[in-house]
Simulated scan of single mutants.
Amino acid sequence: MRAVDEPGPATRLGTFGDQLVRPFLLLFAIGGTVVWWRAVLWPGVALPVFVVAGASAIVALFPLRRLPLGWLVTLLSVAMLSGSVLVPLTEQTTSGPFFAYLAAGAAGSRLASRKAAAGIAVTGAVLAAVLTAVIAALDPDAGPWPWWLALTVALPVYIGIAQRERNAALALVERGRIAREIHDVLGHSLSGIALQLDMSDALRESGRAEQADAAVRKARALAVGSMAETRRAVHALRQGALPLGESLRALAADVTISGSARHIGAEVAHTVLRTAQEAVTNAAKHAPGAAVSVRLACRADVVRLTVHNGPAAEQRGDLATGTGLGLVGMRERAALHGGTLEAGPDGAGWTVELELPR
């Protein structure tokens, strides 16, 4: 049994209940109970229980990242049991039973073990039902809930579990996105560097020292380009991506967008951007100084990206010739989203065309 991992940026919307709704409901429970305190049964008994329930519920709102699991379970158990005791005592205040409901939801969202969360919630619900039945027998005029209605205080545990699992799923999506970024930025470049260095060793052993030095220079150029790409990727992960149109215009001076790119899905937009980055980078490597144009056509059912570069305007011997792995990566990313990618010579230049379903 373990505590729930803290959600990353992609899960912030999933924690809306923790950030706003749950504190509001807790404030309503505390304030309402105080306002309607005259309706509380057995105030001498209810007061210390109310203090414990309120204090434990407030503490449970905090992240408590460093709190040991045993202490967290104890805290949630205290919040649930004290809230359950308040159910029959504060039923006429309307807000008092919220303590038990909030504790059950917190157990479901804070504990990764369904068994532990459900155990805390069910124990509290049984306690609330038993005390409700006892108070009804001792004071029939008090008019508490029917004992079976008190069992409903356990139900929010399932809402908490659903929220936790959603956050976990979003965290996996976020990790997958970061993994793809690392793969795109480093995987192909490192493979290319390794191939160039292996080639350098082979050339040096055969006595072709000049060509071996050229291979080392190509490996260095790949490393430099990889570091620049890594910095851009880290910046994007920290700051968040710009709208697709702005991101494309940051890559090249000649960018044309037809149709609306505002409602393109995040994964499709990311694939378009990464393909454009790779194509523009390849143009700079293989055709330095060439004019590069980027065309994005957004239709009702498909998105088509076309990146074209003309012939090289200058000859640079220190640039890496590449390994073809970047093109493989672009095709893999397109296929992952049900699209196609074509790349090849176009007259004296080179054209990359990506088509993805919307």
Rank of each mutant, 00 (worst) to 15 (best):
L248E: 04
H263I: 03
L273T: 07
A209S: 07
E205R: 11
H235S: 06
A221I: 11
A233L: 02
S293G: 12
E278Y: 14
D213K: 10
A236T: 06
I257T: 11
L244A: 00
E210K: 14
A202I: 15
T271A: 07
H286K: 15
P288V: 00
A261I: 11
V292I: 10
K218G: 09
M227I: 12
G245F: 01
I257N: 14
R231Y: 13
T281L: 15
A212Q: 07
D201A: 13
S247D: 13
A250I: 12
Q239E: 14
T281N: 06
A290Q: 11
N282A: 12
A233H: 01
R217V: 11
G265I: 05
V234G: 02
L222N: 11
G207P: 14
L244V: 08
L242K: 13
A209P: 01
R232S: 15
E246N: 07
A221Q: 13
R274C: 13
E278D: 15
I264P: 00
A290M: 13
E267K: 15
A253T: 11
A291G: 08
Q239S: 15
S206Q: 09
P288Q: 00
A287Q: 05
A290P: 13
G259R: 03
R204Q: 08
A228G: 15
R262N: 08
H263V: 06
S206D: 13
A276L: 02
K218T: 09
L242I: 07
D254A: 05
S260L: 01
A233P: 06
A233W: 04
A215P: 04
A291Y: 07
L222Q: 15
L222H: 10
H235V: 03
V272R: 04
L244I: 08
G289S: 04
A219F: 00
T256D: 01
R262K: 08
T271E: 04
R231A: 08
S247I: 10
A276P: 01
A228V: 13
V280L: 01
I257K: 11
D213M: 12
D213I: 11
I257S: 10
T256L: 05
L237Y: 13
A209E: 04
E229K: 14
